[in-house]
Design a protein around this nucleic acid. Structure first.
Lengths: 189, 189
DNA sequence: GTCTATAACACGATAGAC
DNA sequence: GTCTATCGTGTTATAGAC
């Protein structure tokens, strides 16, 4: 386990504040106060406010991309792949709920990395859609509108950051299991 | 159909901008430019930026509350009630996708009405949870974790504002039908 | 109903002392 | 590594002319 540097501490504190109020509403003075120092002192550790946002979002987005590549290159069935997608979201979100809030809500405030982020997100959605379409082709998955299925799954998974912190009694494996059941098998008895 | 006043026009334009960048990142100058006037001129029609946000959010939140009361006071089965909840979201969101973005993402910037909003939202979530619990009791709904079911349904429905504008070919009834199928029956064949 | 001008203050970021 | 002081700019909102 790497030692948490002062820079990491600032970034984690920023992610927490960004989750509460959004990137634009958090000032460098807010961040400094939360760290117990003055705003000017932050700049000994980070280059700019924008740089903090970039660090938070891009690292998580790349983690999703890496995880997705591992899933689509596996030999599993479509349903198994979708279950692994659920696990991927639960795992990454459990590790970093605050960062996930920024990824979901503040990506549009990225400057230099905006197009890169949009490309990663678009590729990711396409990968999920293709898994679903393959499952429909192989009769594993019902022939509903694949885009509605993708939308429903991804919006649920993307909102996990709101929910995981409130349910710390549920461990990651149980949550992924329960969520897979609901998303894949439905709720009708 | 009521005539759209200049004030309505400002509020609708604001909702559109808030959807794109969030409340805090939209300035009164941005809004004025989008309206083709100067920032100072806005104040002949509205009291403050905060007042615009309040108008957007509270009216929609109350619409949801009214719709929910009609559903829980009906005699339908739990599954039918949930289908009516899906319809309620599809209908309100179709009418006002931009406003739904503010409701979802900018409620924390409400000042005087923050507690009122939180109460409405909390009551709404509880109503959905109770419908699900009743369905479990009456063996209509699988005995999964009712909170996970509620979370999954509501996060999907709350994100419709992102999705409906991209799929204008799908009419509201078809979308509600498809979404109910996916959420209630699952995707596994 | 819109304008120009401006008040009063908050913002991100830097300079330089310690 | 943190501080004080400050620069230059952007912010919401108001006053008063037209």
């Amino acid at each position: 386990m790497k030692q948490e540097t002062r820079k990491d501490e600032i970034i984690n504190t920023a992610a927490k504040l960004f989750k509460e109020k959004g990137y634009s509403a958090v000032t460098m003075r807010d961040l400094a106060t939360a760290m117990g120092i003055k705003a000017a002192s932050l700049y000994n550790h980070i280059n700019s406010k924008q740089d903090i946002l970039k660090t938070i979002i891009i690292s998580i987005a790349e983690e999703f991309t890496t995880g997705m590549h591992s899933i689509i290159n596996s030999e599993a069935s479509s349903i198994s792949k979708l279950k692994r997608v659920v696990k991927l979201h639960v795992n990454i979100t459990s590790k970093n709920t605050n960062g996930m809030a920024s990824l979901n809500n503040d990506w549009m405030h990225l400057e230099d990395q905006l197009n890169y982020y949009l490309q990663l997100r678009n590729d990711y959605e396409n990968d999920v859609l293709n898994i679903i379409k393959e499952g429909v082709s192989s009769s594993e998955i019902k022939n509903n509108n694949p885009e509605i299925i993708m939308f429903s799954m991804l919006t649920t998974l993307r909102s996990l950051y709101l929910w995981i912190p409130k349910k710390e009694d549920l461990n990651a494996n149980d949550l992924a299991e329960n969520l897979s059941e609901v998303l894949i098998e439905g709720i009708n008895k």
